[in-house]
Amino acid sequence: MSFEWMAWTMPTAIFFITIACLLIGMTIWQALAPSGEREGFLPIITTPGDRLFIGLLSSAYINLAWLGLTSLSLWFAFVIAVIWMIVLMRWG
């Protein structure tokens, strides 16, 4: 049994490890100090976990839109997505 068929590469490994760390970190944070639901600038009441999901999904869309509409480096979109994530987690 080998995992050769999964065709791992360094960038995707880093990507998934980052996501996994985010999820584990969130779980530990919420287990130690549960922070309840609240209403920020988003039109719905959210928990930090909800905001993380919204942030990740919208970041994926930001990056895809950048890739599809412009020919500039994707790092710009990445920076925008990170800033957006922070804004969303803090004030969303």
Partner: peptide, 25 residues
């Protein structure tokens, strides 16, 4: 996860693959 891995590479066959970044996207 496997799909994400595939999406960043050009795969010719078993053990023959090249990283192409976001080319396919």
């Amino acid at each position: 996860m496997t799909v994400v891995n595939y999406s960043l590479q050009d795969i010719f066959g078993p053990n023959q693959r090249v990283f192409v970044g976001l080319e396919w996207y």
